[in-house]
Design a protein around this nucleic acid. Structure first.
Lengths: 169, 169
DNA sequence: CTTGTATATCTTGATATCAAGATACAGGAG
DNA sequence: CTCCTGTATCTTGATATCAAGATATACAAG
């Protein structure tokens, strides 16, 4: 019996009038995300990196050359507010992993550019991070992994989680 | 194509040497938890409640009479640190939703007791919250809901997410 | 050109959270 | 009784985050 199953049992005794079935699924979604995050953080920490730092570096890295996105594009990719993006860029700039470059044509826009150091760090951590993710998933059987992936993909579609930028231009 | 699928495509072009398959599943887990949380927060906000406030009240409520848990039990149930628990209790005490009661036998222990007002608020919000969760899940087909639930349950088992207190004593 | 509206980023202030350590108490060994 | 170790809660300081608003710029309408 997992933790959420226990909570469901408690509710069934205390509130038999309410069907808490939906809570079982969504409760697990939230708890599993938190538990997995702890494991991801551990590997990033071994490389002196915060999870959010990798998130920024990886966003820039996977965008391809010239490894540059605007602050607004980072907002949308990482699902954070503009204030948080400003803070993240400032921190990473201080570590020498990114640079700010004002757009010449539209002076409102800031291009965030991955430095060579930033790219090096990102690439150095990447394989270990993916291996960690794989190890987590391999705690489950292959069939269950498939169920989970299909279920989450369906939820992503249902919630309309579309790419922030057009898929290829 | 959902957002994560797009990210996977980007990686396949930039890092064809790395198999980013695990990132697809875990990336979705994290994004879906965040997207769902926004929707849950919206309903709580309609009742002038934070998500974490409901989390505390509901933990006490479902524990059954006398609706009391120790601070440590709350730590473990909600997967937060003791400092955060102290903060949450203090806030909810200020709103009159819980009370602190020192244990007579073991003076280190603090019992956190749900007040009548706290129980009333919890019960008032509960049905709306569950309805909201159900509405979210019903954006997917019944088959996909089943896949998701089974997949998440398997992950919970794999990660050893056991109940914080013994299931029935 | 000027004016108004929309957009991109940054600033400010508040807050939830954590890590680490402090404090207080319990319970056993001698 | 005294000491020691373990445990429960709280405190402190740092930090990431958000909401709301400020600032600067773009661009269209007249």
């Amino acid at each position: 019996m997992d933790a959420v199953e226990y909570f469901v049992q408690q509710w069934r005794e205390e509130r038999p009038d309410i069907d808490v079935e939906p809570m079982a699924t969504i409760g697990r979604l939230s708890r599993m995300a938190a538990l997995v995050q702890v494991r991801l953080d551990a590997v990033f920490a071994q490389h002196d990196l915060q999870s959010w730092e990798f998130d920024v570096l990886a966003s820039l890295r996977r965008s391809g050359q010239p490894y540059s996105l605007t602050a607004g594009e980072l907002d949308r990719t990482m699902m954070i507010t503009s204030g948080t993006t400003t803070h993240r860029i400032t921190r990473l700039e201080a570590r020498g992993f990114v640079e700010r470059v004002r757009d010449e044509d539209d002076r409102r826009v800031v291009h965030v550019l991955l430095t060579d150091a930033g790219r090096a760090v990102c690439d150095a951590v990447h394989q270990a991070h993916i291996d960690n993710e794989r190890a987590i998933l391999e705690l489950m059987g292959a069939d269950d992994r498939e169920l989970l992936t299909r279920g989450l993909t369906a939820l992503a579609e249902a919630l309309g989680d579309v790419p922030p930028a057009p898929p290829k231009r």
